[in-house]
């Protein structure tokens, strides 16, 4: 009798916490997005979509995620495989690679601004080497593509390690015997990676990708530092509506859009990387 209730009792504090600090604010935000003077309305969504910046920021956000996440996935897989093969110094390399994780995203944006700025390192270096005659403004509104590249670089630098850490842990969980069997039965290094590592890493890949994709849709500070208003993204627009234009309703609508695409992509990732029933390790 007692035992039957125990799990629920233990779950209660966390559940209450979630209800108070997540479900309740969420319903408030949702209500704010869908209501005006206490009645249901789609007006705020119409305000949002009719603004010219909505479409641009929507596509910018998706484009950024589409450019950053695959590169990060490939990089973190490569780095994780390398780290896992190391005998000595493994921990030190891992610590160094994860340093950017300890830096806030705004600080990361500023670091990269210091590189790409008109008086930044990159300009000084190119000038010093004689490649350019005068400093170039890489991040001006005329250089949309360099802004994009700078943001992509900063994001990769900043947030690849989060996937790396998850994948290193996942690879560490794959028993050595499967690699040995694959090797005996003729699998080359690459085949062992595609036939053993990748399929057995699916649960970790799921976690890493979901986490990373959600963070990619919430990108804000790095973009603000490097692109300012030249590269609008959804999160930046949310901030704008809330604090610059003082319209909490439209900001709430933006927040719901971000939530919706996050949910859609999470479901897609979980579906694509699902492990067939019975094949769980």
């Amino acid at each position: 009798m007692e035992n039957k209730h125990l799990p629920y009792m233990l779950l209660l504090p966390a559940t209450i916490f979630l209800c108070v600090f997540f479900i309740y604010p969420f319903t408030l935000v949702a209500w704010e997005a869908f209501s005006k003077d206490g009645a249901f309305t789609m007006e705020h969504f119409q305000t949002m979509t009719s603004n010219w910046k909505f479409e641009i920021s929507f596509w910018n956000t998706l484009l950024l995620a589409a450019a950053v996440v695959p590169i990060q996935l490939a990089l973190s897989l490569l780095m994780a495989t390398m780290v896992s093969k190391m005998q000595k110094g493994r921990d030190i390399v891992l610590y160094i690679w994860t340093i950017p994780l300890g830096i806030s995203d705004l600080a990361a944006g500023i670091i990269w601004l210091a590189i790409f700025d008109q008086s930044g390192y990159l300009n000084s270096m190119l000038y010093g080497l004689g490649v350019i005659d005068q400093p170039e403004n890489f991040l001006s509104y005329q250089n949309k593509s360099t802004i994009f590249i700078a943001i992509v670089l900063a994001e990769i630098w900043r947030a690849t390690a989060i996937m790396l850490v998850i994948l290193v842990a996942g690879i560490g969980l794959i028993p050595k015997e499967y690699y040995e069997a694959a090797e005996v039965f003729g699998a080359s290094n690459w085949k062992r990676f595609t036939k053993i590592t990748l399929p057995m890493l699916k649960p970790s890949l799921q976690t890493a990708l979901v986490l990373r994709v959600i963070l990619a849709f919430e990108v804000f500070a790095v973009v603000a530092a490097l692109g300012g208003t030249n590269f609008p993204v959804l999160m930046g627009e949310t901030y704008n509506w809330q604090f610059e234009l003082q319209d909490g309703n439209v900001a709430a609508a933006y927040a719901l859009v971000i939530l919706a695409i996050s949910i859609v992509f999470t479901l897609v990732i979980l579906r694509v990387l699902r492990v067939p029933k019975g094949a769980q390790v």
């Binding site: 028993p175 015997e177 499967y178 040995e180 069997a181 694959a182 090797e183 005996v184 039965f185 003729g186 699998a187 080359s188 053993i196 399929p199 057995m200 699916k202 492990v275 094949a279 769980q280 390790v281």
Partner: peptide, 19 residues
């Protein structure tokens, strides 16, 4: 490397691939 030795092996702990 093992794959160039023309052998097959039954492992003591089986090592049957779970996936």
């Amino acid at each position: 490397p093992p794959r160039q030795r023309g052998i097959a092996m039954v492992f003591q702990n089986y090592a049957v691939f779970p996936h």
